[in-house]
Design a protein around this nucleic acid. Structure first.
Length: 326
DNA sequence: AAGACGAAAGTGGTTGA
DNA sequence: TCAACAACTTTCGTCTT
């Protein structure tokens, strides 16, 4: 059979396979507003509703093994993430060593010209091996990065951000003496803050095998050495996540944002934990919009205590002069 | 009976000497 | 390195809906 024909035939099969796979995953209408205008963004692994902005599914992320490459071009593109299979094979299959003796297989001396050639081959072989050791480290870190972000339901762009930070850290030799796991966790944390999709350190610790202290130390070290400037997390960034978890409408979210902006102006946010402040604002906003949630429910999603929610919202009411019937 | 309230003691992390 | 400190948590008894 003609080679080019085989190749295109395989391509067709692959295309059919992918089509079938994505077809079964299709959502036809938004569960929130019933709209059929859905935006499908596979590069970020999200399906969002065009009408109300609801993120319908972030879980289509792992539909297929992304390390599979069907032709050379894809191989180049996908090799980036680090492939469990290929990288675990020793030397990517290049396990033959070039002997240091200048003899051929029959034990005869090799001519000067051949010797120079073999010398160059040895040199390159060594270089490949060195690069490969670094790659193996990177590949391991990247799979760990993938595992963590998948547990935390993080979108693709944050994974890439985290991977980028990690690569920079490797280039600057910052991981020496630190476990790969603590550094990957720190990278995720950094990326989350950079992209304003805050996850608390506690949430990351939950899925990591390293304790909080270690991650915190790596985090501080990396941000200092790479000169990454991170602004303190704003409580506003937590609104969408908490509100969605509580099943609150967009109206409440907007109200909560108003409250928070007022609170920030009066300086109620400085020094306080952003999650607590956000929880209080959401609690108030929900009551004001007639979608009351209990303090317990709010405090649970924000991972603070009811007492904190109480203290914060009392402060807000007092300083902003909001009057609500509790 | 569940939710909200507030006092009091305890805990972990930051700061400044 | 240590103590002081503010934020936050835990716990528990009481009040409100």
């Amino acid at each position: 059979m003609d080679f080019t024909y085989t190749k295109s035939y395989i391509k067709v099969l692959v295309a059919l396979y992918i089509m079938e796979k994505t077809e079964t995953k299709k959502v036809h209408a938004c569960p929130e507003c019933g709209s059929h205008k859905l935006i499908r963004d596979y590069s970020r692994a999200e399906v969002t509703c065009d009408e109300c902005g609801l993120v319908i599914s972030e879980d289509i992320i792992d539909t297929g093994p992304e390390w599979r490459a069907f032709d050379h071009e894809q191989g180049e593109k996908r090799g980036r993430v680090g492939a469990p299979m290929t990288y675990t094979i020793h030397d990517k299959g290049l396990s033959t060593m070039i002997d240091w003796k200048n003899k051929d297989i029959h034990g005869r001396d090799i001519s000067a010209g051949r010797r120079a050639q073999i010398y160059r081959m040895r040199k390159w072989h060594k270089r490949i091996k060195v690069a490969d050791a670094k790659d193996r480290n990177l590949a391991f870190a990247l799979t760990e990065l993938d595992r963590l972000s998948s547990h935390l339901h993080l979108p693709r762009n944050i994974r890439e951000g985290a991977a980028m930070v990690y690569r920079k850290a490797v280039d600057k030799r910052l991981i020496r003496g630190r476990s790969i796991e603590s550094v990957t966790s720190a990278c995720i944390y950094i990326a989350c803050r950079e992209y304003k999709v805050p996850r608390t350190l506690d949430e990351i610790v939950e899925h990591s095998r390293v304790d909080k202290k270690e991650i915190g130390r790596s985090y501080r070290f990396i941000t200092r050495e790479l000169e990454i400037k991170l602004y303190p997390t704003s409580p506003v960034d937590y609104i969408p996540r908490f509100a969605t978890e509580l099943g609150l409408s967009g109206k409440v979210q907007r109200k909560a944002q108003d409250i928070l902006e007022g609170a920030i102006k009066v300086g109620l946010t400085s020094g306080r934990g952003p999650t607590g402040v956000c929880a209080a604002a959401i609690y108030l906003a929900a009551i004001m919009e007639g979608e009351r949630r209990t303090q317990k429910a709010v405090s649970e999603v924000a991972k603070v205590t009811e007492v904190t929610v109480r203290n914060r919202y009392k402060e807000i009411i007092e300083k902003l002069g909001i009057d609500v019937k509790i």
